[in-house]
Nucleic acid binder design. Structure first.
Length: 473
RNA sequence: GGCGCUAUCGUCUAAGGGUUAGGACAAGGCCCUCUCAAGGCUUAAAUACGGGUUCGAAUCCCGUUAGCGCUACCA
């Protein structure tokens, strides 16, 4: 039974690296008929926030990614503590009564890295029990095997064979002096208990895996398959962080910028993974079908944002591609929400709406464009952009528009063909280039100097509004 | 410092002993055209460095350098 998990700790908003980890887990589960588990690793009570938890759920909901089971570690503390003591009883852990060092670590000093406190590691069971009974505080540490040259090995599904001498691993903590399990303990206990078969997570855990294997083995639990993912980094090479890089690292930035959930997922997938056949624009199903560990890279991937522009250009391109290629029926509700969020509403019925979205989406990059560059289609209160104004200011242009408006008004019926007939007839009559009237019309009708074919604009704007806008010129 | 991992155009990546080192984004040009996108064509742009192994290395090995990660009673 294939079971994977995404285990965020709610100590910041959902950032794009975490989102990608979720996506890869999800893809792997969906690809192989497995179970996707969302586990909130909220053992660090001090740093957890409700806002962070909300952002995780908001982000995942926005992306439309679902999970099959949900757990909170905070409700499972007993299930983490018990196995720690089990390890202790087997002799694979010991109490360390050394007081927590006040500020920072002076442990890893001069003679090399800190591995353990010899006095504590060798304490007899009787002595250890006595001091514990006397109420002395202690942390429970794993007794990492140091005899011989035992190596801890495993094969990572992405990074290949991994090996490290056990003696090089420090006696890491399982239980804190307040009795709370550490991340390593809680995580492994849950992974074992929840029967996680594949641990797919960030490469920052690659070196932690040696410790985790020690725990799994001490627990007598089956080892899951590990697959580590290259990290997402900033253009300056540093790992993505809110402090250094600001909101670009947050999933909500992309949502608020008007991204399509699926386009964002598509973009995320291309960071550190490739289908190896040059495909880039992929549907959800194509992603699922193509996903495998073999396609995952080992080098970190740069999210290419700039100071003035938080969006990776390729992400924007992908969004534009999806925007114009997805079924318009699927896009329409998202556009409607965007329009309504901007305080506008859809003036005509669904048929008109679908047609209009179809016409104008071809030049847009994000959903936001519908409310900004596309504002004139939904509202009479719009500004004419400066470069569009220049088209209106062409000599004679305004007069021609008024005349065109008058002719359209006299004419029965109204559609693309009629608009084109009248416009071209007028141009011919006046010996004027059609382009002048065309460009000026686009400016007057849509407020933009650029956009769809102007006759499609006439149709989308509609007879009454088109005539009014022309005459107002 | 110790340990682990990584290194192909500016960015995302393909090629895993023999290719003119391929694609995409971004940039430049041309075509199309009522504008702008889209689309088509096209230009520029890379195997970090040094040694091996081999008839032949981006690819395998060693070293160097650089980056990242771990080295907490954070996760």
């Amino acid at each position: 039974m294939l079971r994977v998990r995404f285990a965020p700790s709610p100590t910041g908003y959902l950032h794009i690296g975490s989102a990608r980890t979720f996506v890869f887990n999800w893809l792997y589960a969906r690809r192989n008929g497995g179970t996707m588990i969302l586990r909130i690793d909220d053992t660090d009570v001090e740093r957890n926030t409700q806002a962070s938890l909300d952002s995780i759920f908001d982000g995942l909901r926005w992306l439309g990614l679902e999970w099959d089971e949900l757990y909170h570690q905070s409700g499972r503390v007993d299930q983490h503590r018990a196995p720690a003591w089990e390890i202790f009883e087997k002799g694979n852990a010991y109490r360390d009564f050394t007081p927590a060092s006040a500020d920072g670590e002076e442990k890893g000093q001069e003679g090399g890295p800190w591995r353990f406190n010899p006095g504590m590691r060798e304490l007899t069971r009787q002595e250890s029990d006595r001091r514990a009974a006397a109420g002395e505080a202690f942390v429970l540490r794993f007794r990492v095997p140091r005899e011989g040259r035992r190596a801890i090995t495993f094969t990572d599904a992405v990074y290949g064979p991994q090996s490290k001498e056990a003696a090089g691993v420090e006696d890491f903590a399982l239980l804190r002096s307040n009795g709370m399990p550490t991340y390593h303990m809680a995580s492994c206990a849950d992974d074992a208990d929840l029967k996680i078969s594949h641990i797919i997570r960030g490469q920052d855990h690659l070196s932690n895996t040696f410790k985790h294997i020690l725990i799994f083995e001490a627990l007598g639990a089956a080892l899951p398959t590990f697959a580590h993912l290259p990290l997402l980094i900033a253009p300056d090479g540093a790992k993505l962080s809110k402090r250094r890089h600001g909101p670009v690292v947050s999933v909500t930035t992309y949502r608020d910028a008007g991204f399509l959930p699926h386009a964002f997922i598509n973009f995320l997938c291309l960071l550190g993974w490739s289908p190896k056949d040059n495909r880039e624009l992929m549907s959800r199903q194509e992603l699922i079908d193509a996903f495998s560990f073999e396609g995952i890279n080992r080098g970190n991937a740069v999210v290419n944002f700039k100071d003035g522009d938080p969006l990776d250009p390729k992400a924007a391109w992908l969004n534009g591609q999806h925007l114009r290629s997805m079924p318009v029926e699927e896009l329409a509700p998202l556009v409607r929400a965007t329009i309504e969020n901007a305080g506008l509403d859809v003036p005509y019925g669904e048929e008109w709406f679908l047609k209009t979205v179809e016409v104008i989406r071809s030049r847009f990059i994000t959903l936001k464009d519908f409310a900004t560059r596309g504002r004139a289609y939904f509202s009479d209160s719009f500004k004419i952009a400066p470069d569009a104004l220049a088209k209106l200011d062409e000599p004679g242009a305004r007069e021609l528009l008024r005349e065109l408006g008058a002719r359209l008004e006299k004419r029965d019926g109204f559609n693309e063909q009629i608009a084109e007939e009248e416009l071209r007839a007028l141009a011919a009559e006046r010996g004027e280039k059609a382009g002048v009237i065309i460009n000026a019309s686009r400016a007057a009708l849509s407020g933009q100097s650029v956009g769809p074919s102007v006759f499609a604009v006439f149709a989308a704007v509609g007879r009454e509004r088109a005539i009014a806008r022309l005459k107002k010129a």
